[in-house]
Computed example of a mutant assay.
Amino acid sequence: MFDHVVFGVSDYAASKTFFLKSLEPLGMVIVQEGEKGIELSADGKVSLCLYQTEEKPARLHLAFVAENRQQVDAFHRAALEVGASDNGGPGLRPHYHANYYAAFVIGPDGHNVEVVCHKPEG
């Protein structure tokens, strides 16, 4: 398990809007924001940090845990509303395991962002 993930983005405002809105269903909120960027967290322990950069970072695959399938669905809707591209709508991915329910989008910098629930429905 990680403590935090930090990466640069090419459009800070667009990325801030994207991650705040699309991860809101998971409870992600701004923990702090300053000249070094923004830190988001849902539990105050694990955080996602973004900062403006001119460097072209390699594309990432970021996967966030959802407590239920409704959070996965809400993430997908919210991400598309703020301009993300669909990269796999909400649904079961039984080739991973029987209860792997996930959705994927491509964010502002081309990162593949996933939200997954490993629990059975109900």
Rank of each mutant, 00 (worst) to 15 (best):
E67S: 15
A84L: 09
P94E: 00
A74Q: 09
S47L: 09
A79W: 01
V6H: 03
D3I: 03
V5S: 03
L60K: 12
A98F: 13
Q52H: 08
D3Q: 10
A103Q: 06
V113G: 05
T17V: 14
K16D: 02
L48W: 06
L80E: 00
A66L: 13
A14T: 08
F64A: 04
F7W: 11
H61F: 05
M1N: 11
E33H: 09
V5A: 08
M28N: 00
N68Y: 06
G34Q: 02
E67A: 15
K119M: 11
D43I: 10
F75L: 02
S41W: 07
V72W: 11
R59V: 12
H4C: 15
L92H: 09
G107N: 06
G88K: 00
L50P: 05
A78I: 01
F64T: 00
V9N: 04
Q71F: 10
P57I: 14
V29K: 15
G34W: 01
H4Q: 13
H118F: 06
Q32G: 13
Y96I: 06
H4M: 10
G89I: 08
L20Q: 11
L92P: 00
A78W: 00
G88C: 02
F104T: 09
A63W: 01
D11I: 10
L26V: 01
S85I: 04
L20S: 12
P90Y: 10
D43M: 11
G37A: 10
V115P: 05
G37L: 03
D11W: 03
H95D: 11
E81F: 12
V65N: 10
S22P: 03
N112Y: 02
R77Q: 10
P120Q: 11
V65W: 01
H76M: 14
N99L: 10
V5C: 07
V116Y: 14
Y101K: 00
E81K: 14
V105L: 05
T53N: 02
E81A: 15
A84P: 03
F18M: 07
A13V: 04
A102D: 12
E55Y: 07
V116R: 02
A98H: 14
N68W: 05
A102G: 11
H111Q: 11
N99G: 11
Q70G: 11
V82I: 11
C49V: 14
